Amino acid sequence: MSAPSLTPSKTGNSLAVKPRSARPGPQGGRLARSLRRNLTAHGFLVGAVVCFALFSWYPMVREVLLAFQKTEDGAVSWVGLDNLATVFNDPAFWQAWRNTLMFTLLALVLGFAVPFVVAVTINEFRHGKGYLRLLVYLPVMLPPVASVLLFKYLYDPGYGLLNEVFDFFGLPAQQWLQDPDVSLLAVVVASTWMNMGGATLIYLAALQGIPGELYEAAELDGAGLLRKIWHVTVPQTRLILSLMLLMQVIATMQVFVEPFLLTGGAGPEGSTTTVVYLIYQYAFSFNNYGAAAALGLLLLVLLAGFSAAYVKLSRAEDE
């Protein structure tokens, strides 16, 4: 008997099944499979678009229309620029803009600089950074009403803590929320304390991304703390500082909650009347929705123009 051959026979090779080459399916089938795979993502996307359309884009379009309309007894009529004329002829209009600009400038001095200084200080600690971050962010987690009640207690002219401190050092008591010369500054201080936590955490995240070698090189060159901050920290966080400056201006130009809850909105002699509070008065006190929409449109155009100019200048500096 002959030994079995180790070489496969031609017959065996001819019986082997060859794999079929994969053929591309029809275009419609691939599209259907892609839609099924991304069905959840498309669902979330549609939900977000619907929410933006209903609660953001539609109110903006509606505001633009209301700025040129007047509603009386349920009847809507087009009045052109009459609403803008009503707003411009109101003496409170210029006072509101003056107070808003002053609030913005004071908030830039305190609300923009203080969180950065606090972030730099916390970043220098080697231990307890987590506890300090929680402590700084705690005011943001408090309801605004609770924070306002705290500052009303601090500012009370009779038993307030600030006047007690002033009395301890032999200083005269102040009418913090009743004096037109001091009330706006008191509101700025309260607003800074209530909102500085978020900005501080953003600055901390930016500071932790700076390479330590840069500080070591600065120390070898004999740089002190202030020079290291000016020549290393500020240039390395310039992008975040620019973005936060823009957001700070936009937020402070729309301030409403703090003056409304602390001083009732207008304040003594109208010293804390802001543009947004004047919009609130037109809409809900005077029932003049056209004037409120016209003033809101002016604020929108101003902030949009400022944002566009700021972005253009920032790009020119980068180039």
Rank of each mutant, 00 (worst) to 15 (best):
L185Y: 08
V165L: 14
Q175I: 02
L214C: 07
T233N: 01
P180Y: 04
T237N: 06
V234F: 05
E164R: 06
V165R: 03
G198D: 11
F168R: 05
G158W: 07
N163M: 09
G160F: 09
D181H: 02
N163P: 02
L149A: 02
W176V: 01
S183I: 04
A218W: 08
F151C: 00
F166S: 09
L207D: 12
I210Q: 02
A173L: 00
E164S: 11
A173C: 03
D179R: 00
G209K: 00
L161H: 00
R227G: 14
L225K: 04
G160D: 03
F151M: 00
W193Y: 14
Y155V: 03
G197E: 05
F169I: 13
N195F: 11
T192W: 15
Y215W: 07
V148H: 01
D156H: 07
V189S: 09
D167P: 10
L150V: 09
D156S: 02
L185R: 02
N163K: 01
T192R: 06
G209M: 00
V189Q: 12
E213G: 06
E164G: 05
P157C: 04
R238N: 05
Q174V: 13
W193S: 12
P172L: 03
W193D: 08
L226C: 08
N163A: 08
L239F: 14
F169M: 13
A186C: 08
Q175V: 05
F169S: 12
P172M: 03
V148Y: 02
P157I: 06
N195L: 08
G197L: 06
T200M: 10
L243M: 14
E213K: 01
G224M: 04
L214M: 11
G160I: 05
L177T: 06
D179T: 01
A199F: 05
D181W: 02
S242H: 11
P172N: 06
A190I: 12
M194E: 07
Y203M: 07
M196E: 02
L161N: 00
F169W: 14
V188Q: 05
D156Y: 05
L207T: 10
G224T: 06
A206W: 13
Y215I: 03
P172A: 02
I240D: 14
P235N: 01
L207F: 10
L171T: 06
A223K: 11
T233Y: 03
Q175T: 07
D156P: 05
F151A: 00
Q174L: 13
